[in-house]
Amino acid sequence: MRAAIVCAISAVLAVLSVLPAAAQSPTLDSVKKRGQLVCGVNTGLAGFAAPDDRGNWVGIDVDFCRAVAAAIFRDGTKVRFVPLNAKERFTALQSREVDILSRNTTWTMSRDTSLGLNFSGILYFDGQAFMVRRALGLKSANELKGASICVQSGTTNELNLADFFATRGLTYRPVVYERLVEVLGAYASGRCDAFTTDSSQLIAERTRLPDPDAHEVLPDLISKEPLGPAVRQGDAVWSNIVRWTLFALINAEELGVTQASVEADRESSNPEIRRLLGTEGDYGKGIGLDRDWAVSVLKAVGNYGESFERNLGQGSPLKIARGRNALWKDGGLMYAPPVR
């Protein structure tokens, strides 16, 4: 018995002494062992995460998952997508059902500090708006006094809606559903006068209505909705991998590195590009990845601008303008710290 204990202890010590001191991440280890990244995404939101007609997941949130998978495995297809509704998402991340939550989720203080998770950055700067029937002839959300308003439960939208009407001293009738498809269905059938959620979602959901032109999104944005990926607290290396994958996408756009040019850009004369792509220095080491991890990321999904235009912008049916999601040097808010 005693011999067995001594053996066990020495075995554990031996294993511990072999492990490298740098970049230890239980999440990264389990992802590598599994051979697949598990990513929590929306159950179906055009432009962010939705299955296409061949059953492949597409969208900017999905691209981000593929980018992280590419950073780890050099292969953007090694991802399993887990569709989650608003109510399930945080529990799924807390209980290790998913490795990342990339599901148009608003970064708020309470979520960042009391749910045992960390937001890794901002993938899309959004704001909450209202969609109404054009026939009502409304100019602003301030005219919605007494209206029935459809909203999804368990979202920041539900809270912003209450604040918006309470601060203006107006009454309204909330109609709350658990799933986005139920909210849209209720709005389409006339159960509600208005449908409120993040502006990008409204634009995406409008295309699914029988007669999109009969509906309009009101110009008022009633909240800040910074959407971004989240990971569990307590795994700093994993958090860094996710954060720097996002920064790599934004830096690549700023430096003009695209999906098509990335292979040739390895030999670029620009030192910033050479550092990003691992031709100079070894910045991947600190996050437990290869020297040229960013090359795999860009080969898999392209830079941030390419992913945006493909999923939300001019290359998509949604035709959302870059606006606040343009690079900082183009007057937007997208800004990433440098690789050096």
Binding site: K87, F90, R111, G116, S153, G154, T155, E158, V176
Partner: peptide, 8 residues
């Protein structure tokens, strides 16, 4: 539903 989601 809602309370669980808002408080976690």
């Amino acid at each position: 539903g809602t309370v669980l989601n808002q408080t976690g």
